[in-house]
Design a protein around this nucleic acid. Structure first.
Lengths: 120, 120
DNA sequence: CGGTATCCAAGCTGATACTG
DNA sequence: CAGTATCAGCTTGGATACCG
């Protein structure tokens, strides 16, 4: 089952998915927009202080190209731009949730591990 | 809730999770090992022909350091090394599954989209 | 078989400065 | 506020050679 998309061919839907959401900060951006929507660029920056502006804008553009988010520009001064998840973007909620859940498990695992070591 | 790990500090378990499974090929590797386990290096290479050997080995090492996978070396000639998911690694199954599921949705979305365009 | 070492090109990332 | 430009540095990739 070959899936052509953007000059590439994917052989599984997992590979297709990863090509779209696998970017360095994309899951983090989607996580933000799942919590609150719409968000302005400056608001996303507050939620994700570790992402520099250039990368953030690039990743937002890519997500927009892939129809995961929508970008609405209001013709006002000073500029106002709002980002929110598209219909297909909203379906990423289980992905983000499962990652958060696993992160919780992993954190517990790390705590147990450090306990073991401190007992030794 | 600060989570120190490997000289860094994470503020959410999502960030911690992404630091561990966010690598370029890690989800793909985990996907392989969920389907079949244990796997030898050469078998993983067959499943993931797009990953070059050097990167594959690097990502495997990182996953091993993070206790996501285990690496067992058999002292035989020729060498035999087997990789498999650890207990915490196995818990990543919902993450991989949700990504695959979303990929299916996205593929359908793309197909509908191309239909619309061909009608126009 | 399962690696490591080296070289080199290309792309991604980040910090900073600047603009309409 | 939202975004672009520039430059430096790191990561990734591909090919190839070599080792225990």
């Amino acid at each position: 089952m070959e899936i052509p998309y953007k000059d590439k061919t994917f052989f599984t839907s997992k590979d297709l998915a990863l090509s779209v959401i696998g970017g360095r900060w994309k899951i983090a951006i989607i996580w933000c927009l799942l919590r609150q929507s719409p968000l302005r660029l400056s608001e996303i920056q507050k939620y994700l202080p570790d992402v520099n502006q250039r990368m953030l804008i690039r990743q937002l553009r890519e997500l927009e190209e892939d129809n995961i988010i929508t970008r609405v520009v209001y013709p006002v001064v000073p500029p106002k731009v709002e980002y929110q998840l598209s219909e297909i973007g909203l379906l990423l909620e289980p992905v983000v949730t499962s990652i958060c859940d696993w992160g919780d498990n992993f954190r517990e695992f790390l705590e147990k591990d450090s306990n073991k070591k401190s007992v030794e």
